[in-house]
Nucleic acid binder design. Structure first.
Length: 274
DNA sequence: AGAGATACCTGGGAGC
DNA sequence: TGCTCCCAGGTATCTC
């Protein structure tokens, strides 16, 4: 699955590929992914050069010269692929962008959790309105112990739910949340408003460490992901607690347990994490 | 308003 | 081997 580091990598390569080029035609082959794709057929998107491709949380913003933009989310299985018109269309390639240099960019998304939504920006470089409710970037300076503590104080829900809440901090998914909590020795079950400032400091540092490490390994994970199905890659081999239900904790050998929060499974060591 | 539940979708693994 | 069933993931949206 594309995590923050993969989205980071993909954004950079899309920037290199697209800036200065225009879409001359967009073909869609399914009615909808997460959202209907019909708005992509609006001719206003065509024949205006791309001026920027940037990332916000796990969204990719492709900005066009006349103030329109495409906001892309890869969902769980979304992949962009550079292609030639003669290439046969793969089973799950749902959108084909024709470029003015004769090339193509194709969007493949087997589980259809991805989305591509056109929007109009209030000014050049502005954040799309649909992303305005997002919380801070975990790797930015604004993500501090004090900020996290202030946010958590307002929440009675389980800490893990709060860590995964995009309104607080973006880019921490189920897997990262489990690993970050394990490495800081804090239980995912703790009420968010019961976490101390000192523990917030540990959570913030560990979040940055884990994400930075993943970014460093990102290229490798990403290339594996593209060749295979997303379940392979270096990162998975480094997981300490996620997916290890019933197996011994790597620190104390207590068996790893799970609990379900809002339909998501949390893996944790009941002895190491308090 | 906040919190919890659910829908969306399909590949893959488990169980029979 | 082939079938069915269930789970995984992020986020929008619905319900309480």
């Amino acid at each position: 699955m594309p995590e923050l580091p993969e989205v980071h990598t993909i954004t950079k390569s899309l920037h290199k590929l697209l800036v200065g080029k225009s879409f001359t035609k967009i073909e869609v082959f399914v009615e909808r992914l997460r959202f209907p794709l019909a708005p992509l057929l609006d001719e206003k998107i065509l024949n205006h050069p791309v001026v920027d491709v940037r990332r916000r949380a796990r969204y990719i913003v492709i900005e066009l010269k006349h103030g329109h933009a495409l906001v892309v989310h890869l969902g769980m299985t979304g992949v962009f692929r550079e292609a030639q018109p003669s290439d046969e269309r793969r089973k799950h390639e749902h959108v084909i962008f024709h470029l003015d240099d004769g090339g193509q960019l194709r969007f493949e998304c087997p589980r259809r959790f991805g989305s591509i939504v056109p929007c109009v920006l209030s000014s050049p470089g502005a954040e799309p309105l649909m992303l305005s409710q997002l919380g801070v970037e975990p790797l930015e300076k604004q993500f501090t112990a004090r900020y996290l503590h202030e946010q958590l104080k307002k929440r009675k829900c389980a800490l893990k739910i709060a860590l995964m809440d995009n309104k607080i901090v973006v880019g921490i998914g189920n897997i990262y949340a489990a690993e970050i909590l394990f490495k800081t020795g804090i239980s995912p079950l703790r009420p968010a408003n019961n976490v101390t400032l000192k523990e917030c400091a540990a959570l913030v540092k560990m979040s940055k460490d884990v994400l930075n490490a993943a970014i460093l390994a990102g290229g490798t994970t990403f290339s594996d992901y593209r060749q295979l199905d997303g379940s392979e890659g270096k990162f998975e081999r480094e997981l300490l607690v996620y997916g290890r239900k019933g197996k011994p904790c790597c620190h104390c050998s207590t068996l790893v347990e799970t609990v379900t929060h809002g339909g998501r499974t949390s893996f944790y060591c009941p002895k190491c994490q308090r």
